[in-house]
Design a protein around this nucleic acid. Structure first.
Lengths: 137, 137
DNA sequence: ACATCTATTGACGTTAACGTCAATTAAGCG
DNA sequence: CGCTTAATTGACGTTAACGTCAATAGATGT
């Protein structure tokens, strides 16, 4: 496993080492390199050493959130593309809008699934609490 | 691939073949057997042929929803256990309640992640639409 | 200068969640 | 009763998403 040492995060930093980001997000350096190999992030190099800027740090945040939401790396990479789309040409903007709307539909469907699941569990919770009252009475 | 034939679903059915369920939920029969091998569902047998009741049909629904929400089969199986927990003994009910609450925490965290993602995309949507207006003007 | 971190790359291993294929067995029907 | 269709099991293949390990190169502290 990687050490979680790395430089003391002096506030307002805008360059990061692979170890810093791994420590901050609690993932392995290998995972970060893997994401790079998949084109999800594109750190600069100083010699052979990777140097990460805010952009890739932000991308890592989005990647991890995407994972928490159950999306595959492929889906996440499509999601990330939305963030650096070209907005100078109307047709490009229109394409972006279409893709954003498609994504929104997916996320909203997922949200509605989630809400149903939550309601069901809340019902179970209510039932269980009621049972406990009865049984202790 | 499996044929999507199977019996005409006479309403109020409470027994199902593997092919019917596969067709209805648009998954392969192999997947259903795989879920069984993992203990997620426990169809009856008539000879060697699987016969599914409403219980397993419902479980399939829950499994698929769990998958849409990005949970692993292992997590889903724990989720399913909540549905057939023993509620006759107070200590069991208390355990159930604890596990339900743990699940609820997970789902609520996910929902909050989702809401942030949706807001971000809605902002992008608004921005893109504005751009298009400007460009067409 | 030397040992010690830290990083890089490449090769290979691993787990989950299926799919594909083949050999059998069972069921329905004209 | 053969024939076709449907179902079962087992063996093996596959893809995604990493982890493990080894060899090597740079940077760093003493």
């Amino acid at each position: 496993m990687d050490k979680i040492l790395a430089k003391p995060a002096d506030t307002k930093q805008d360059l990061f080492s692979i170890a810093e980001l791994a420590g901050e997000f609690d993932i392995s350096t290998r995972t970060i390199r893997f994401y790079e190999s998949k084109g999800l992030i594109t750190p600069d190099r100083v010699g052979t050493t990777r140097v990460f800027r805010r952009r890739d740090r932000t991308r890592l945040l989005l990647i991890l959130r995407g994972k928490r939401l159950g999306f595959s790396l492929k889906e996440i990479s499509e999601y990330l593309e939305l963030y650096d789309a070209d907005n100078t040409q109307a047709t490009q903007t229109q394409h972006l809008l279409n893709r954003v709307n498609t994504r929104l539909d997916m996320l909203r469907a997922q949200k509605s699934d989630l809400e149903v699941a939550i309601e069901e569990l809340e019902a179970m919770q209510g039932y269980a609490e009621e049972q406990l009252k009865k049984q202790s009475a």
